[in-house]
Each structure stands twice: as structure tokens, then as C-alpha cells.
Design a binder for these strands. Sequence first.
DNA 1: CGGGGTATTGAACCTTGGTTCAATGCCCTG
DNA 2: CAGGGCATTGAACCAAGGTTCAATACCCCG
Lengths: 206, 206
Amino acid sequence: MNILPTIGLVDDEPGMLKALQRLLNAEGFRVRAFGSASEFLQRFASETVDCLVLDVSMPGLTGLELQEQLNRAGARLPIVFLTGQGDIPMSVRAIKAGAVNFLTKPVTDADLLAALRAALAEARRFQDENRELAELRKQLDSLTPRELEVLRHVIAGKLNKQIASALGTGEQNIKVHRMRITAKMGLPSVAELVRAAERLGIKPVE
Amino acid sequence: MNILPTIGLVDDEPGMLKALQRLLNAEGFRVRAFGSASEFLQRFASETVDCLVLDVSMPGLTGLELQEQLNRAGARLPIVFLTGQGDIPMSVRAIKAGAVNFLTKPVTDADLLAALRAALAEARRFQDENRELAELRKQLDSLTPRELEVLRHVIAGKLNKQIASALGTGEQNIKVHRMRITAKMGLPSVAELVRAAERLGIKPVE
DNA sequence: CGGGGTATTGAACCTTGGTTCAATGCCCTG
DNA sequence: CAGGGCATTGAACCAAGGTTCAATACCCCG
């Protein structure tokens, strides 16, 4: 998010893009406009945005399909839908898929800005969480496969003796591996390893 | 949920209640009908339901307000909205508040039944989780205040030595307390204590 | 082929946790 | 007051984890 929140606009009507861009610029946001879902997908790697304002009905990929694709990719980008031909089933689907809001044109400036504030707040939460997770993930990736396997036993509460026999090796090895695990992860206690593994999606063995 | 899934209907139109009741009975559900939100609130303690079909616009408390009240009370009852005068903002609000679906009258039997199947599946998930949690909670409540305090240190990864000095007592006490904690909770390893405490909302000390 | 990262193994030592005896003091309730 | 539940304490012992030495073996990459 740097200092200036950046909002991505995806809409196939150039007039709508222009108008929104003017409004949001006046409100102090940085804006990046995309004429279609595929254009966004091509450019969003280089032109990052903090949240999206998305039209539903567009030629090519629809807004809902774009949302789905972003979700599958794990992008977790807050989305505000803004559409002229919305109906209730669409809005239900969008919100269930995690959209921040689902607004219909014409929209008041106040409604749009309120939704964007909510979206940006959510973006900040995501980014904070991602920063923490990225650090943990980096440390996790520095573990060797064997160490990861031992970790999965440790967070299951297994004794070194049990881990050794499960892995077909000796207890001393497990001790060595555990020492390296706690060193690499910077987490000296089993309790913290359990919590970190949970956040990283590491499943305990068994 | 017993054997027969029970569905609560809340609608102010008696004709609608009748029609729905007939449909759902034919599908093998048990049905309990309520003519208003307040009638449901009065009777739902004794006449439990597994999920709710809820009209939005009713005299007195609206469906959305009833949903909000149930949420505040922590009821976690899956809700399918079914309404004649729905609009997009309503549906957004309902889904954000956790509704399973938001359907508009007239509704096809297939749509309603699909929504109810989803709602009942969610109800089962809630009930399973609640059963597990209730067992843990019971064991947790059997801990003395002192043992709970020790537990909060243990799941923070503290050593007995540190816990003792933090609580102004000796290391032997902590060992005794830990022994009783693991016995009462039935969880021999620190790893499992951490996970159980997390689910119960017990915060580690510090 | 040589070297680096990884996995393994043994030994010895210390720290910590877990368990079991037994006993004391406090506080609240019947 | 008597009894029960709770917190505490000491001693002693065993089991388990943590640490540090050192050495061997495997495998892949340059």
C-alpha cells in the first residue's frame, strides 16, 4: 500500500473508468484502470493494487469469474463490485466468495467511498498478516525435508523415541534435527512451534 | 438434529407457511412454523430447530434483525432467507452476517431444497464442533484457578522455572499443577494443550 | 572427480519434566 | 467446629529433552 492507497478499476465502459478515476483521484487515491478482466490479469503482476472495483458484466471474463480466479490463485485482494445489471443471486455469490461489497450503478460517491475504505482496511489486514507469514514461511522453507518431517511429529506431541521409530532411525538423530529446527525457526518452545505450524498450514502427523 | 432434520419457518403470511410446510413435510423434514420473529424467539428455547427459513419483511422484528439478534446471542443457527421484497443491499447484509442463502419468491422447490441441504450440512458442522468444544470446555472448567493460570504459562512455552517465579512460588508446585492439568484435560502433550487452548479461546500469558 | 549440503551415529553431560511418596496451611461451607 | 478442596513444600528418582564433541556416509552439482 506504500503511502498512497492504490485502487484498481476494471470496467469495459471507458466513460465509467474516466468518471471513477476522476472521483478517486480527487479523493487522494492512486488509480489504475483496466478495460477488461484479462487486461488486469496481464498487468497486475507489475502494476500492483491494494483493492479492486470490479464490474460484473463484461465481455470476456466476467467480474465474478475474475474474482474466482483470484481466489483460486490465493490473491486475497479485497473486491468491491460495481455493476449496472446486478441481481440478487450475483450479489450472493460475490459476497460468499469474499467480496467487500456489491454496489449497483448509479452509486453515490459516499457509498462507493465507504466501500473502498472498508476494502482498504481489509487490504491492510491482509498485508500485515502476509508480512508475518512471509517471515515464518521463509524460515520454514530453510528446513530440510527430513527436518520438516520431524517437525510434523513434534507438533503432534510425539516423543523423540516415537519419532525415531516412526522414521526408522535413532533417537539421537531426532534430537539433532529438533535442535536445528528450533534454531532455524527461531522458536525455542514446542508451544510456539505448534502455533507457527498451524498458521503455516503444516498438519501434525497422523 | 436427532434423526429427522427439523426446519424452522418464520413468515407472517399464513398461506406461505402452509405451503412451505406441506412441501418440506413431503420431503421428509420435520417443520416448526412461527408467525413472527418474536414468536420464534419465545418458543425456540423449547422447540429447537436445525436451521431457519426466514422472511425478511415482517411486521415487528424483520428477518435481518432477527438474524442479528441470534448472532449476538452466539446461536450460530444456519439461516436461509426467502422473501418477496428483497433487494441487493439486503442480500449483501444477510450473507455478510452469515446467511446460507438469500432466495426470492417465487422460489423453485429445487432451489429451496438445495439451500436447505446446504443449511443442514452447516448445522451438522456446527453441532459437531460444538460437541467437541463442550467436552473440552467441561474439562477446562474442572481446572482450579491456579491450574488455569499455570496452563496459560505452559501454552506460552514457559519453563517450569519461569512459571514458578512469575507466580511467586516454587518449581515443585508447578510440576504438581501440570500433572493435574494434563490428567484433567486428558491431553498429555504440550502440543495438544496448545491446540485445545486455542480452540477454547485461552490466551497464552504475556 | 571434488566439495557442500544433508542424514546419520555414538558418546557423554546437563537441564528439564514427570512421578510418587509424604506433610502442612488456608479458606470456605455444612 | 469439622471436613473438603485447594495451594504449597520437600525429597528423591526416573525419563526425556537439549547440547556439544566427533565422525561417517550419501547424493547432487559444478
